[in-house]
């Protein structure tokens, strides 16, 4: 294996140096194993489960399908970048309250996808929620509480935005 020169990734607003990496490493691997950002999870290695979802230049992608060294100069956002530890975002809080979390392995990816969805479509229909989140597989919940969690956030944000 030939190690590469040093390269720098911009993750959650910070420049992070990556040294001695193997050329074939995915962004998921580098985030987890070299940068210690463990929120994104690997569960399929082929973009079929969404557990590794992150934002790259504001686009939701599977980090397992991003060649890490090709992401130099991109703005990468992971779950760690959404909210400080102990201060969950409204989406994160809704997941917990609505019962959308069981084993929790798919959860960080779904939090990324749901956050992205609500940023683009503030008031999604049931079908929009299902289509936009269809790239995130959950084996525990059967999705019902996840749909409920997204709806809760949409309602809460709408109510907060309305004049009293």
């Amino acid at each position: 294996m030939t190690a590469m020169e040093v390269y720098t990734l911009r993750v959650n607003g910070d420049d992070r140096e990556v040294a001695d990496a193997w050329l074939g490493e995915s962004l998921l691997y580098v985030l987890r194993e070299r940068l210690g950002l463990l929120a994104a999870k690997g569960a399929c290695e082929q973009g079929e489960c969404g557990s590794c979802s992150v934002l790259v230049d504001q686009h939701l992608v599977c980090s397992c399908l991003v060649l890490a060294a090709s992401a130099v100069g991109r703005e990468i956002v992971t779950v760690e970048g959404l909210a400080p530890v102990g201060v969950p975002s409204d989406v994160q809080r809704a997941f917990v309250d609505a019962g959308a979390v069981q084993c929790g392995f798919c959860t960080p990816g779904l939090v990324m996808a749901a956050t992205d969805l609500l940023d683009r479509i503030p008031d999604p229909t049931d079908m929009q929620i299902r289509e936009e989140l269809a790239g995130n597989v959950c084996r525990c919940t059967g999705y019902g509480r996840l749909v409920a969690a997204v709806q809760q956030v949409a309602v809460a944000r709408r109510e907060a935005g309305e004049p009293a």
């Binding site: 290695e45 399908l65 090709s70």
Partner: peptide, 21 residues
């Protein structure tokens, strides 16, 4: 050649596309 990566990276992750050595 790497475009979106959605095919190439699957092959690299599976070890079906030797790279970097």
């Amino acid at each position: 050649v790497l475009a979106g990566g959605t095919d190439l990276m699957v092959e690299i992750n599976e070890g079906h596309r030797p790279i970097g050595s």
